[in-house]
Design a protein around this nucleic acid. Sequence first.
DNA 1: TTTT
DNA 2: TTTT
Lengths: 182, 182, 182, 182
Amino acid sequence: MASRGINKVILIGNLGNDPEIRYLPNGGAVANLSLATSESWRDKNTGEMREKTEWHRVVLFGKTAEVAGEYLRKGSQVYIEGQLQTRKWQDQNGQDRYTTEVAVQPFSGSMQMLGGRGGQNQGQPMQQSPQQQGGWGQPQQPKQPQQNFNQQPPQQQSAPQPQSQPQQQYNDLPDFDDDIPF
Amino acid sequence: MASRGINKVILIGNLGNDPEIRYLPNGGAVANLSLATSESWRDKNTGEMREKTEWHRVVLFGKTAEVAGEYLRKGSQVYIEGQLQTRKWQDQNGQDRYTTEVAVQPFSGSMQMLGGRGGQNQGQPMQQSPQQQGGWGQPQQPKQPQQNFNQQPPQQQSAPQPQSQPQQQYNDLPDFDDDIPF
Amino acid sequence: MASRGINKVILIGNLGNDPEIRYLPNGGAVANLSLATSESWRDKNTGEMREKTEWHRVVLFGKTAEVAGEYLRKGSQVYIEGQLQTRKWQDQNGQDRYTTEVAVQPFSGSMQMLGGRGGQNQGQPMQQSPQQQGGWGQPQQPKQPQQNFNQQPPQQQSAPQPQSQPQQQYNDLPDFDDDIPF
Amino acid sequence: MASRGINKVILIGNLGNDPEIRYLPNGGAVANLSLATSESWRDKNTGEMREKTEWHRVVLFGKTAEVAGEYLRKGSQVYIEGQLQTRKWQDQNGQDRYTTEVAVQPFSGSMQMLGGRGGQNQGQPMQQSPQQQGGWGQPQQPKQPQQNFNQQPPQQQSAPQPQSQPQQQYNDLPDFDDDIPF
DNA sequence: TTTT
DNA sequence: TTTT
């Protein structure tokens, strides 16, 4: 039954890069987002404005991952509800390393694009070249499922992807289908 | 001003150990908690119950840290509201490492002890030897402020404390005092 | 599909009364909780401590409602995650009235009992007479499903139940079963 | 100190109207928002898409209220973190009525405009006539503080404003100033 | 109507 | 690496 404890993360931020989508052997999609949240405040001592940006590694699964891959782009503003998850892996020296991610679970998590397609809901069509940033992108071409799940280690400053991580780590996902509203 | 983005973590879990309290050169308290949240579910394929525990590294500041040090014990159930924060540090080989914590900020975060003092509010006095677990402890003796802030690297399974981290990392805290209700 | 917008309520509080359980014509359970959250603070002007209690009307569905009915009692501390929902109804004079509730939806919401059964996880069996308050109760006897869903209007100070409300308001619930982990 | 219990509401939605700003006798601003969150889902039985919109009454105080009054407009997308609060009032027949609001407290709550000024961050200046909807408005002219706080009962579909409510209900607000980062 |  |  259920769970003992609450593990909930709520983020609103902007993507530092286009989502990275991969496909599991069983065809399920997995998307990784690099999401920035920033705070600014006036320093009590110096009176100057200061700013600090935090980068979050977000991982999405299944349908939600596909939607992210199709509509999110570098700069997109997005709402994320997920849970904290720390994965253990070995670096090239065989040393234990840990990476903490925000996992958006199919049932309990959610992802929502913010800001509206045409900006202020004015309904005008959005033309967006690849160089343009922010907002929602046009759907990309359907991607081919790939077998090489860990082929390209993501580069991330604040919580780098392991270079040798367990292969089957997402096989335990609960089943889910289109009928579930998320 | 303020912030662009939302960075919020909500946890309810139990402490794996007594809080570790340290004091900054300016006398401000810092507490580290190791907090477990667990989920259990029935495996769709095997029909067996499965359980997974996630360990969170939580850091508290100031008054909240002192309250944690005085009243929380191994096993205590606690509510935490904080924000995700990834610190960079160098390991003994000079390699960059990252540790993600849930920081309970003086203004925006909060900590709350759950479950009541005597358990089911039956009012009976709680005697709690150091070996006993859970609930709220009696206040410990006042601790002496220490200078050696990073003296003892905490041991934590899922996100170990750096062995050589920046010394002055918490000097930017906003001022706060007893009038602020948190 | 899914949703545009976020509507999320998180409460931790104590029950002012035992849960009220009812059964829909289709056999689905519905539970109503009256949940108190309180804040206390020192008045800046007078220096006195002040306290304010807020009462929340919470409604649970299905399995979660049954668990609430079996284990929660007056005084129990509970975590609730749900969504705000304002229902319109007519009072005896035919005037429109509105009641705002926190609805714990089967998929997106959750309920969790806090504080542990025996208090500090000391494992001692809990004996709890009906007069005792707080903690988790023993399971009540299984209740008989009833047809008369709106037979007894609940009495609640802060957000009274309509005396003539729509009969079929909960028929749109998504299906759910035991496999869904909530 | 502090509080016993958690009372937290998180909303992301769009304004149904421009904010209504009023000023307390002491000069403090109070803003009321009417915020819509909507859900859509496919009906399991009919296969049709269905949608339900929930309207939330949000109240902001002080600086946050002023920012809302200056930058938010009908259609604006906004993030709200506040707490549930039910106010009692008497209708014209002297009957007790209750209104539930989401109050964004100066210290614990927050408000954040979403979606960026020019929509997809394309940098083009936004011209917005009063009829245009969504996005962030240009700052309005500074308003004159008014004494007649309850002069105009707001019109809101789901939780109408009382027609005769307590006059001094917001006098208990904690002091706050510009140094506090929210 | 709860709890501390 | 984002955004303002």
